[in-house]
Each structure stands twice: as structure tokens, then as C-alpha cells.
Write a protein that binds this DNA or RNA. Sequence first.
RNA 1: UCCCCUGUAGCUCAGUUGGCAGAGCGUCUGGCUGUUAACCAGAAUGUCCGUGGUUCGAGCCCGCGCGGGGGAGCCA
Length: 462
Amino acid sequence: MRLTIKELFELPPDGRSVIVKGWIRTKRETKSAVFLEVNDGSRMGNIQCVFDEAAAASSAAEIARAGTGASVRVEGSLVASPASGQKVEVKALSFEVIGEAPADGYPLQKKAHSMEFLREIAHLRPRTNTFGAVARVRNRMAFAVHQFFQDRGFNYVHTPIITTSDAEGAGEMFQVTTLDLDRIAKSGEPVDYSKDFFGKAASLTVSGQLNVETYCQALSRVYTFGPTFRAENSNTTRHLSEFWMIEPEVAFNDIADNMDLAEDFLKSLARVALSDCAEDLTFFDQRIQNGLLDMLAKMIAAPFARMTYTEAVKELEKTPEAFEFKPYWGCDLQSEHEKFLTEKIVGGPLIVTDYPKEIKSFYMKLNADGKTVRAMDVLVPRFGEIIGGSEREERLDVLEERIEALGLKKETYSWYLDLRRFGTTPHSGFGLGFERLMLYVTGMANIRDVIPFPRAPKLADF
RNA sequence: UCCCCUGUAGCUCAGUUGGCAGAGCGUCUGGCUGUUAACCAGAAUGUCCGUGGUUCGAGCCCGCGCGGGGGAGCCA
């Protein structure tokens, strides 16, 4: 198998014969030499292929066709570079253009492009430094997620993508149907879901949590990592309609254990990014977000700040900072509040716990005060919530009361309630939006730029 | 869904009081003894988002529509 450019860079530049295949980033021509920068995505850096006067002359016709973006094959010898700027290079002997990229149509130029423009050519943007780096980091982080949990005895559970239980309550759902909508609309008759594919209304999942809890109550340590879908009309830099979520769930863990797990998890992922994606992260540090490397190193080194919701509101109330929304006990923490707490008060990640029950989900464990629940949100500077989780309510009677108080139907949750009827245990878990982790680790500003083909309202191209 | 900004060359943008459409980069051509987002010289390139209106005259002003961005809410 052909060596990748990354692998070539690991070889000694002893003049050995090598073959480079990849795409041209830039071509520089002088009278005495031609320089081709070739990249194959195996790493951030290109390999420089140099044609001396004789080689350039014998390959002149091919070199003329080799514009930015063309796919090429270069055969030559791997040598130490006589010029500064790169340690090794390929002294080219023969050259072939595999696929041309005509300059009058190829949209990527050898210059910086805006993220907005690149978003419109999502099929070509992985050929840029930035999106190549995002793709490599995303790959490494996905693997690191599994490594983290596998190393700790967690079982990976595949929760369903299609669901007929409208139970998660985490957001608006996309309907899944095979009914002929045109015909039903024309007929004017009410929709009969008993005739639909699953015999009832079905949707794409908004969370695997309730399903994964069932396996938690059998395998103790479990996690899901898969796509989730929310039909919310949100147009922000940190929401997607289709995103990947990681949801661990641990039997017998209380909220303190849950916080420790979340903190270990984030630190472990940051550690892997710094060690295994150093070249890409250095690029992000220089070109995307200054101070990224320091921020990640600092995050790993220091324990996360922790405070209860009640303490957080007190902090917000006592500051002279003028908020658009005045904080008070019982209010949901606004973006500006979260930013103030993480950026001004603690200067790093912050875990806020024990929120008022009114602003959190039904399945969160009620505290003894009867007013707050054992929720925990991990907030980070720049964009707020990255993890949301809780200790779950394991007491059947309390859970049923909460369901009724919130106007939900008990029948809908019968299988979920069975977990409390038969061998219930305390347990805890959380959800981490994978793309939010990517924003945090890469310093990228828009969540649409850390997933290959983003889906958002009015956006499902490619 | 709400608020604000924005749409001009392939890209990023400028365009004065309403009066002949501009720059940089990219591209192309030529030059240059090893270049690093090469450099130097020259050239080509426009449905000024669409639509209706005001006006002698609209890239510019007004209405409507569409696209893009940022913020808010929802949340991960």
C-alpha cells in the first residue's frame, strides 16, 4: 500500500525512492525549479515536491496541468531539504496528473476563505487546512470517547434511532412516516396512525437516555454514542437539528460520582487532543482561537469549580454587572449569566447543581428540600452548557408524582417506571453534545463547522 | 420564532450628495538561480440577489420577496 504523507515524514530522508499521491495545495514556479505542495489529508502539513530544471522540462506538459486542487502522483527520492521551511522534501523524477482541477471552476484558491463561503461548498471544504484538521480531531475524539468508557468497564449500548415513545421531552421531534401525505391532505380525512408503518406515530429520537437507563439497570455501566435529532427552530452557533450525543449512565452513582465522571471525561478527552492532535491543535491555536492550547492545559490541571444553583444565583445577584435579564431564585440561567459565571467568576469550567425542579426534567431526583432536583450542568466559557445530567429519581412514588405534577401521562412511561418497580437503584448519567465538545477542543466558533454536513433549519444540502 | 446587521468580479470588500463599476487576493501571460499564502511587470473578468416603485437618471432612496451572518429563546 502507498505510504501516506504522514508516514513519509516518519522515514529518514536518505534518498530512498518514494511515491506521493495527493492533491496540490500550491504550485510555485521559478526558472530553475518548480515546487509543488502536496497534501493527502493524513496530516496538516504538506510535502514539498521539487522539480529541478531537467525534471521540470521533462514533465513540463503535466506541470502545466497541475493547478491547485489537482490530484497527482509524484515519484522521486526522499531527501533532506536544502532550504529552511521544511526538513524533508521529495526530489521529483517523474510526475503525473491524475485528475485536473481547472482554475476557472475550482472554488478553492491558495488563499484564506471565509467560513461562510466554505459552508456553501461542504463537499470540498475538507480539502482546506481548517476542515481537514477538524475532521482529524473529530475522528480522534470519537475514538477517545469509546476508549474512555471501554477502559472503565462501560458497555456501549445502541439505543434506537426511531422511536414511538414521545417520552424524552427533550425537544420537538421529527416525524417518521410512510403514509402518503399528499393523498391524506387531499382527502381531508384525519390521519390514521394505526395504518402507518409501525402501527402508531413514530419519530426520530431526541435522546437515548431513557432507553440506556434500562441497560444501566442490568449492566451497571453503560453509554450510548449516536445521532440525535431535534426539530427545534433554533438558529444559533451552538445548535444543530442532527447532532451526536454521548450519554453514559451508571447504576449506584450519586450526583457527586456523576460530576467526577463528567470532569474526568472532559479532561481525558482534552488530554488526548493535546497529545494526539498536537499539529492540528497548534494550527487552531494560531489561526482560529489564540490561547486555545493554554486554555485546554489549564482546564486539565485545575479541578472544575462547583456550586449549587442557589449559590450561583447569589453570585449573580451580588455583582454590579448589569444583566439584560435580572437574575432571581427560580429563573432559568440565561446565556449571559452562564458566561458571567464561567468567564468572570471562576475563569474556567463550572458545574452547577441542584436546580429548581420547575426548570428541569421529570426524571431528576428530588432533593429533601422538595424544591430542587439533583441536576448538574457543566458550563464552559464562550458558549455555556456543554453537559447536562442528573442523578435520576429512583423512587417509584416520587417519580409518579413528578410525572403527574408536570401533566404527563403515566401510561406513556410504563416501561420506564418498571425500572423503579423491579430492583430499582440510585443511578446517574449525563449527556454531552459531541459537536459542542468539538467547539471546545478546536476553538471553532460555529457548530456548523465541526460536523461534515450540518443539518439545521433550512439547511440540509449535500 | 424574535431582534440587529448584511447581499457589488472566482474570493474578501470599497463605492462620496443619486450622475461612465473599483481595489486587494485568486486566475491568465511574461520575467526571476531553491520557492515557503514566493516575488516583479502586465492583462482579462460584473444579471451590483430578485422584483416593484420614486427619479431626467438608482449599486446607492422606498416597498415586498429570497439568501447569508450575529445575538436571544429552546437545549446538548
